[in-house]
Simulated scan of single mutants.
Amino acid sequence: MTRTLEILDRLIAFDTVSRNSNLELAGYAADILERHGFAVTRIPSADGGKTGLYAEIGPTGDGIMLSAHTDVVPVDGQDWTRDPFRLTREGDRLFGRGTTDMKGYLASILSLAERAARADLREPLKMVLSYDEEIGCVGIQEMLDRVAPLIGQPRACFVGEPTEMQVAVGHKGKAALRATCFGQSGHSALAPNFVNALHLATDFVTELRGLQRRFAEQGHRDPAYSVPYTTLHVGLLTGGTALNIVPDRAEITFEYRHLAADPAADILRAIHAAAERVSETYRRDWNGARIEIEQYNAYPGLDVPDSDCVIGLAQKLARTNDTTKVAFGTEAGFFSELGIPTVVCGPGSMEGQGHKPDEYLTLSQLRACDEMMDRILEDLSH
């Protein structure tokens, strides 16, 4: 615990909000790993302002992989009563941005790396550190084609997002989309003579709400989730330049989060069909009316079969008999799609502390994570 806390203190001091570079933190982590015998590969972003890391120690083989991201969410507009980028210990609580999500886990695996250097490993220990997870798993998507050949096929991957050290075997997939609605500009005194792009937009939002109702009332359900069905959410609606001008363009930013039983391709087809229904109505007045749909980001869900051996291994290592599913997205789906048995398990509570002011991690949770790391090291040494 002492070494893990020392590392966590350094990690919190790096302001790795996603809009900033993570190079200093990555350099600190790479130095620890390389000094303790890990082969480290840097995987830079396209602009060179950030980097991911792949690290491995031990003999050639499958082994176990640990995954963490290095970025954190902003503190802007939040009412912090402590310095968010300075680790503050008060009783059983460790305060600081990222303590729960997920620098506590990162500190624990870097501490493990130092202990692994002294172990007689029979299988390799592998680590993947990414960037830009908090803005939609962007970093791992950029890294994947370069990191996949290095990873091989570990027999288990543990993604350390906060689950209170429970074994999470599922989360929904997500897609972020933009709908651009095209109408006609004109003087508002003659508004009925023109197709108002905001009218297309609001009618399309109504269609999306109808699609949401169908998923809620008739769609597949998974009671392991607090919201047990596929969801659609409209987050932004913009359009128009002045009150006396009929807007010729409006934009909607929206998302869907889907159960594994609701394929993304089917949802996307339903969205395009809704856009076409709205457009066709307005084409009676103007043939150029249309709604264009662009998907600008997506990440896969995670749905581990009950029969997968990784569940039993994770339960043994985390000392729990239960499994859970989480509401938030993670990078786990990307590793699962590579054929790597993957679960999510890490210290802290996303619901209780994640992304909030005065974010904290309890010492007991960090201790439980360190103890799991010791059991992973023991598993790799026998």
Score class of each variant (00 low, 15 high):
Ala189His: 06
Gln78Cys: 06
Val278Tyr: 14
Gly77Tyr: 12
Phe158Arg: 06
Val246Leu: 06
Lys174His: 02
Leu8Glu: 02
Cys369Met: 13
Val278Arg: 09
Val234Ile: 15
Leu366Lys: 10
Tyr105Asn: 01
Thr324Val: 13
Asp222Thr: 10
Gly312Cys: 02
Phe335Trp: 04
Ile64Met: 15
Tyr360Lys: 05
Glu371His: 10
Asn196Thr: 07
Leu106Asn: 08
Glu280Gly: 07
Val343Ser: 05
Arg122Asp: 06
Gly339Ile: 14
Ile271Ser: 03
Ala265Ile: 05
Gly98Asn: 08
Asp83Leu: 02
Arg209Ser: 15
Met373Cys: 12
Leu232Ser: 01
Phe158Glu: 06
Arg86Pro: 15
Asp358Pro: 04
Ala179Phe: 01
Glu164Pro: 13
His355Tyr: 07
Cys369Tyr: 11
Pro44Gln: 02
Leu313Val: 10
Ser381Glu: 03
Asp266Lys: 03
Asp76Lys: 09
Asn22Ile: 03
Asp101Arg: 08
Thr330Ala: 09
Pro149Asn: 05
Ile252Pro: 00
Ala260Glu: 15
Tyr54Phe: 15
Arg257Gln: 05
Val167Arg: 13
Leu363Gly: 08
Arg122Trp: 00
Leu302Arg: 00
Ala107Asp: 07
Val147Thr: 00
Phe95Val: 11
Gly333Asp: 05
Asp266Thr: 09
Phe215Asn: 08
Tyr54Arg: 12
Arg118Lys: 10
Asp15Pro: 00
Ala368Cys: 02
Asn20Gly: 05
Leu302Gly: 13
His187Leu: 12
